[in-house]
Structure formats: structure tokens, C-alpha cells
Design a protein around this nucleic acid. Structure first.
Length: 651
RNA sequence: GGCGGUGUAGCUCAGUUGGUCAGAGCAUGCGGUUCAUACCCGCAGUGUCGUAGGUUCGAAUCCUACCACCGCUACCA
């Protein structure tokens, strides 16, 4: 294991719109890790990028009257601008439209195809173009995309499939053998149970659009999203090319940082692609929670998108980074609000940290002509401060190695707060009145400068704009030895005789004046419930919503005669029925196997919903639904009280 | 339906193997201080630790049931 290399990635973002603060979260986490590891002497490679193919981009470009590449060029430029503003220190920015990426994707696919793990078949599914996602019948909400609520299209086409199922057992074993592979553990457990439920082969090509990388052996197909996108993590390293030194040096990745919504793709699809290609999987995948706004996930359709550029303009990138990293609980969702941001800013950054620097430099200037004098023999209070400081670096290290950014910051702030308290306890202004206390005064001032120095070093990876401003004021700009992580090991990194120069406030307090509460791009229209609230949303006495007779009439109920019934293979609860409804015969799948034997059903008249949209259950298309009364433990089919011809309406 | 998680002060959350575990930060109130960015320091609270049982000498911490919310997932048509 190359212990001193560290390869960290963010997902590659989709350039159909501007990025929001949620994207900034992942990238800021990755940047903080990258900076931290560099500080610790690691050879770090930090990759981010953009995932630029797909039907949605193609459409958006057409709407904008642009070629797709022109369209994404523009948006990707805004990505890069955001990362510049956020001080993101990536080593490379991969774009899936680059030839260097396409080559690798095609070669990888060809290789897997040649060994027989990719085959041609047909795909059918409901597709939401804006979300670039396929849904099963069941997942749809009122026939619309469950994510964005927009209509979906039924897509059926010839496609290439990746034989993922073949590798399910191996992957499961790998996950079980590597408990740290998926973090946090709750995601790991979810993935295990997902795999144990059986993996289906993955559709990896499309013919309905052409904005993508062509399938090498069948160019009328274009490689579909995940195979294309995930491969960025190795295409950026030149995998399989003449110059693959980066790949050999940095792969496997130390960690892929992702949002919890795409953990599955990174821990199932991606490792299997790699397995099939004979490449090691990444060492770790960490899925962080979402930054929720107004209690919900941020999304354009909800109208609660927060634009990070506006926030950076207003508060500075360090403050935004601090908020993101401090406010997210480990592995869980965090909440964004501008109030919370300002509160965090004022209390932690302005009052605690910024003010500590300010009072420290002010006192050194006022009480000691701006010079940091060497300390005299320490007193118990000094030892207390030192001892506390001595334990912080390890805590920070440990927290960061587990992606516990908030915990790391809390640890650093213990030092900041202890230093503020130290000032009260030692009361330098009192010492200054007594010339005989000069050595003591100088010692106290020295210790303060040292505490600020140490905190600043540790804070650097989180807020990269801070150290230089502090070094400037503390007079350590030209003392590199006083700025290393290693220097934290000993108390006394500030050279005696250093001259401070008090400057502007690091984080000026934000005073909220009445009516001046700034709000980032907010929901202009409330999140509307798109259901056509019938009849004013009247509610019947039973507490159930009332509908009109016209609405009820839309449901066609008919009598059906059961001709045959059999159990569905691999299903405990399902029976497959052949039902005659007038002059047509239908196949209906019913979840009644626990309550009825197939034989006893034949000849029964049942009531079915005749105009229900067909759905596929366990591979069988069910053309309708059999009505049954149910309570907690029993189930009874609804039948007709007298014999009546099948096909008869029920109303 | 299955599996998993969460439910602790007004808010956001810590609480290892059951016995100073009833806590932190923010917000609130009072006091102190003046070097500092109306800051900082100290003190003070308020809590049926979701509900109801159980195990135990003793449970926020273990067990059972239930309620609420959340995540993943499915054979509920």
C-alpha cells in the first residue's frame, strides 16, 4: 500500500444548471481532506469534473439553440469559477466530453464486451428526462417522476447490458471482507441488503439520443450514464493509455466522496465494472448526508436552491466553507438557513477566533511595543493551556480520517476558547500596570501568540484563506517552519522577537439590522402540491377525502371469471390468474397466495379493476387488479352475490 | 410487507462495555471584566431522556410492545 499517496474525488457534476450549495458541500469536504493530507506530507491527487453527456443536455442545448458542447462549455465554466471562488485546490478537472476520457471508456467497455460480460437485449422503462433516471412502474407517483413530479416517458429500445449479476457474490464478499469500504455503516448495511436482494444486469447504452460516447462495437448506440460517468475516476489518471503513470501511482482511490443518493452507484456498479476489468476497487466510499433547506432536499423544482456564489460574495468563501463543514452531522443530513449561517459566523468566527487574534495582537502592540518576547518559566495556567493544545492535533487527525469535519472543528475551537479564557485568567492589562510583572506579561502574550499560531495551522485545510491573513498579522509570513503541522508537536513555534502587525478584523461581525435580512435565491413560489385538489379538498366524516361521482366513474370495475390460477415462481404471495372478462381474457397477478389455493379460485367470479394501467410483477404483466377485503390477518376476495355474466360492470 | 435508523433542555446535537449520564454549543437571564470585532469570562436555569411495560440492587443506556418520523428495499395491481 502506498501509504503516502492520497487520491480523493468528488462526483462529477451535471452541467444542466448552476451548482447549488449542496454541490459545494461535497467539493469542500474533498478539498479540506486534500489540503489536510498535503499538510501532512501526502502526495495528494484531487479530482473533480463534469459529467456532460445525456439526453437532457442535448435537449437543453437545443432549446438554447446551441450545440451541446457549446452549451456545456458555458456551464462548466461556471463550475470552475465557483471552485476558484471557493478555493478548491483540485489537481485535475475531468470532463466526460474530453477525448482522453472517451478513449478510456470505450476501451474499458470493449474489454468487458470481449470477455462476454456485455450483451445485447431490449430495455423498457419509464424515463424522466430532467432527472436522467429510469423508474419502475411502482416508483412513479401519480404516473409522474417521484423525484421532480414531472411526466415520464415509456422507453423501449435495444440496449447493451452489463452482466452485473454475475459479480454479485464477489462484490458481497468484498464488502463483507472490507468493513470500512462503505461509510457510514448505515449505508453499508443498506447496500448489503440491496445486493442480497439480487442484482439485475445494468443497461448501459441508449439509441434514443446521440450526445454521448459511442459504443465501440456498435456506434449507433451511445454509452449510457453510469458506465460513462464513473469511469472518470480512472480515465483522468490515464488508465489503459500509453501514459498511465498517474493511474499506477494513485489508484486505488483513497476515497470517493459522494452524496448519499449515489452511494449505490459507487459501491455496486462501479466496483463491479472494475472487477470485470480486473482493476482494484476504491478503498473507500463515503456518502454524506444532504444539506436540507426549508426541511427538504434542495432542488430546482422545489425552488429552494441556494446559490453559493451569492453567499460567497456576501460572507466570503472561508465562512461558507466553515459553515458547511461545521454544520453537517456525521453521515446525516444538515440544515441550511441564512440565520444559522450568520449565527455560526458571528459566534465562532467573529467572536471566538477573529476576536482572539484581534485582542492578542492589540495587547502585544499596546503592552510590548508589538514584539513577541520570549516566555519566562511557565506557571500552572500556562501548562494547562499547553496541555490542552497538545492533544488537539491528534483529535483533528482522527476526526478527519473518519470524515468527521464538525468534530475536528469543535476540537480546534476548544483551543480557541481556552485561549480566550486564558486571557481572562491572566488579565494581561493588570500585569501591564505593574512594571515588575513584565516577564510574566511577556510570557502570557507569548502563549497567546502561540495558541493562535497552532489554531491557525489546524484551521488552514478548512478555511484556506485564513492562514495567510493571520501570518501577516502575527509576523510569521516569512517563517515557514512555524507554519507546518509538525511544528504543532512543540509549544513554542513562534520565534521570540517576532514583530506583530495588527490588521483588519479577520471576520467582521455581521450586524443584522431590521428588515435587512439577506436571503439567497429563495423560493419565489411556494412548493405547490400538484394534485388537482378535488372539490376544494373536502374531507368526509370518516377522515377520508371525498371524491365526486364523476371521479369514481373513471374507475371501471368488472366481473371476471377465473379460468386458471397458479403460483408465481419465486414469490410467496403472488398468484397468476387467467381471468375471462366478457370476450377478453386477461392475465392478472394478485398478492393472495397466502390466503387462497390456486385450485379453489377456478370458477370464482371476482371483481377486477379493468382500466388499471398494466404493471409488471415478478416479470409478469398484470392487466388489472382483483379486489379483496383485507384486515390485519385475513383477506377475502370480493365476488358477486348472484351468478352474473363475466364482463358485467360493477358500479 | 421486510430490513435498518432516529425520537435527550426553546434550537442543533453528545451520551463508550447499564451505576456523578442527565450533558455541550447556540438562544435566554443575572453578574464580572475592559486587551478585543457591543467582545470575552463566570453563574443560573428549564428536560416525564417518544409512550407503556419488563429485566436488574440500579437503565437514556438491555428486552418486549406500541406511537411518530426517516432511510434502503420488495412479490402489496
Amino acid at each position: 500500500m502506498g501509504d503516502k499517496v492520497f487520491y480523493v474525488t468528488t462526483p462529477i457534476y451535471y452541467p444542466s444548471d448552476k451548482l447549488h450549495i449542496g454541490h459545494a458541500l461535497t467539493t469542500t469536504m474533498a478539498d479540506t481532506l486534500a489540503r489536510y493530507k498535503r499538510l501532512r506530507g501526502y502526495d495528494v491527487y484531487f479530482l473533480t469534473g463534469s459529467d456532460e453527456h445525456g439526453q437532457k443536455i442535448q435537449r437543453k442545448a437545443r432549446e438554447a439553440n446551441l450545440e451541446p458542447i457549446q452549451y456545456v462549455d458555458r456551464i462548466v465554466a461556471t463550475f470552475q469559477e465557483l471552485w476558484r471562488r471557493l478555493n478548491i485546490s483540485y489537481n485535475d478537472f475531468i470532463r466526460t466530453t474530453e477525448p482522453r476520457h472517451a478513449r478510456v471508456v470505450q476501451a474499458l467497455l470493449q474489454k468487458i464486451y470481449d470477455q462476454g460480460d456485455i450483451y445485447k437485449s431490449t430495455y423498457e422503462g419509464w424515463y424522466c428526462t430532467p432527472c436522467e433516471t429510469f423508474w419502475t412502474e411502482r416508483q412513479l407517483v401519480d404516473g409522474n417522476c417521484p423525484d421532480c413530479g414531472r411526466p415520464v416517458e415509456l422507453v423501449k429500445e435495444e440496449s447493451y447490458f452489463f452482466r452485473m449479476s454475475k459479480y454479485a457474490d464477489r462484490l458481497l464478499q468484498y464488502i463483507k471482507d472490507h468493513p470500512d469500504f462503505i461509510q457510514p455503516v448505515t449505508r453499508r448495511n443498506e447496500m448489503i441488503s440491496f445486493i442480497e436482494g439480487g442484482l439485475e444486469d445494468l443497461c448501459i447504452s441508449r439509441t434514443t439520443f446521440d450526445w454521448g460516447i459511442p459504443v465501440p462495437m456498435d456506434p449507433k448506440h451511445v454509452i449510457y450514464v453510469w458506465f460513462d460517468a464513473l469511469t472518470n475516476y480512472i480515465s483522468a489518471l490515464g488508465y489503459g493509455t500509453a501514459d498511465d503513470h498517474l493511474f499506477r501511482k494513485y489508484w486505488p482511490a483513497a476515497v470517493h466522496l459522494v452524496g448519499k443518493d449515489i452511494v449505490r452507484f459507487h459501491t455496486i456498479i462501479w466496483p463491479i465494472i472494475l472487477m470485470a476489468a480486473g482493476i482494484d476497487p476504491p478503498r473507500q466510499v463515503f456518502g454524506h448526508g444532504w444539506l436540507l433547506v426549508d426541511g427538504g432536499k434542495m432542488s430546482k423544482s422545489r425552488g429552494n436552491v441556494v446559490d453559493p456564489i451569492i453567499l460567497i460574495d456576501r460572507y466570503g468563501s472561508d465562512a461558507i466553507r466553515y459553515f458547511l463543514l461545521r454544520e453537517m452531522p456525521y453521515g446525516a443530513d444538515g440544515y441550511y438557513s441564512e440565520d444559522a449561517l450568520i449565527n455560526r459566523y458571528n459566534t465562532d468566527l467573529a467572536n471566538d477566533f477573529g476576536n482572539l487574534l484581534s485582542r492578542t495582537t492589540a495587547m502585544i502592540e499596546k503592552f510590548n511595543e508589538g514584539v513577541i518576547a520570549p516566555p519566562a518559566a511557565p506557571e500552572p495556567l500556562d501548562e494547562e493551556l499547553k496541555n490542552l493544545a497538545a492533544g488537539i492535533p491528534d483529535e483533528v487527525d482522527n476526526a478527519l480520517n473518519h470524515y468527521e469535519f464538525a468534530r475536528a472543528l469543535v476540537a480546534i475551537w476548544r483551543l480557541v476558547n481556552r485561549a480566550n479564557k486564558y486571557i481572562e485568567e491572566t488579565a494581561p492589562w493588570a500585569l501591564a500596570r505593574d512594571p515588575g510583572q513584565k516577564p510574566r506579561l511577556q510570557t502570557v502574550l507569548y502563549n497567546l501568540a502561540e495558541a493562535v499560531r497552532q489554531a491557525t495551522i489546524m484551521v488552514g485545510p478548512f478555511m484556506p484563506g485564513v492562514p495567510d491573513r493571520v501570518w501577516d498579522q502575527l509576523g510569521l509570513k516569512d517563517v515557514p517552519a512555524a507554519r507546518t503541522w509538525e511544528s504543532l508537536a512543540t509549544w513554542g513555534g513562534v520565534p521570540a522577537g517576532t514583530r506583530v502587525r495588527r490588521g483588519e478584523a479577520l471576520f467582521p461581525r455581521i450586524d443584522l439590522k431590521e428588515g435587512e435580512i439577506p436571503v439567497a435565491e429563495k423560493a419565489t413560489e411556494p412548493v405547490k402540491a400538484p394534485e388537482a385538489a378535488p372539490a376544494g379538498g373536502a374531507v368526509a366524516q370518516s377522515g377520508e377525502e371525498e371524491i365526486t361521482i364523476e371521479e369514481f366513474a373513471r374507475i371501471k370495475l368488472r366481473v371476471g371469471l377465473v379460468l386458471a390460477a397458479e403460483k408465481v415462481a419465486n414469490a410467496d404471495k403472488l398468484l397468476k390468474l387467467q381471468v375471462r372478462v366478457g370476450d377478453e381474457e386477461r392475465t392478472i397477478v394478485a398478492g393472495i397466495a397466502r390466503h387462497y389455493q390456486p385450485e379453489e379460485l377456478v370458477g370464482k367470479r371476482v371483481v377486477i379493476v379493468a382500466n388499471l394501467k398494466p404493471a409488471k410483477l415478478r416479470g409478469i404483466v398484470s392487466q388489472g387488479m382483483v379486489l379483496a377485503a383485507v384486515d390485519d390477518e385475513s383477506l377475502s376476495l370480493v365476488t358477486t352475490e348472484r351468478a352474473i355474466k363475466d364482463g358485467a360492470q360493477v358500479r
